[in-house]
């Protein structure tokens, strides 16, 4: 089909690109109107539209399959198991975390009475440490 009203009418190529969205009602009102006008005069584009509609009907013939009868129950029990398992694991993890810090604080705990400076004075004679200690 030729462009009857140049600038307003659409050519077949443009219409065919938009015909799928037109079918789905996804074009704006102005575009839909232009496509409708084109279709009213173009048998070839009407055929394209018809072919797309047939394709959709073909796809809609797919039967709906049912999930197995106990599906909902199965999903719910699986979730419950996951929740309990997860919370149990979280509890264990927290316990281990606490234990780690407990041990860490035990190891790093300072002696009850502060050590005297003399306790550190047993450096080898003549060593830099001994000299430094003497200056102190």
């Amino acid at each position: 089909m030729s462009d009857r009203k140049k600038g307003v009418s659409m050519n077949c190529q443009d219409v065919r690109k938009k015909i799928s969205a037109y079918m789905d009602g996804e074009n704006d009102a102005a575009m839909s109107q232009r496509i409708r006008e084109h279709l009213s005069e173009c048998a070839e584009c009407r055929n394209t539209l018809q072919a797309f509609q047939d394709t959709d009907s073909f796809l809609r013939k797919l039967p709906t399959h049912e999930v197995s009868p106990g599906f909902t129950r199965q999903v719910m029990s699986e979730l419950r198991y996951n929740v309990r398992h997860k919370s149990h694991s979280a509890y264990n993890l927290l316990n281990r975390f606490m234990k780690f810090f407990e041990i860490l604080f035990d190891v790093s705990e300072l002696p009850k009475s502060p050590a005297s400076l003399e306790e550190f004075a047993d450096f080898p004679p003549g060593s830099l440490c001994k000299i430094y200690f003497k200056i102190l």
Partner: peptide, 16 residues
């Protein structure tokens, strides 16, 4: 829009 258009075109070709 493009994906659906191409899918329909392909299905149409396959059916024809």
């Amino acid at each position: 829009e493009s994906l659906i258009f191409r899918a329909r075109t392909k299905l149409r070709e396959l059916r024809s």
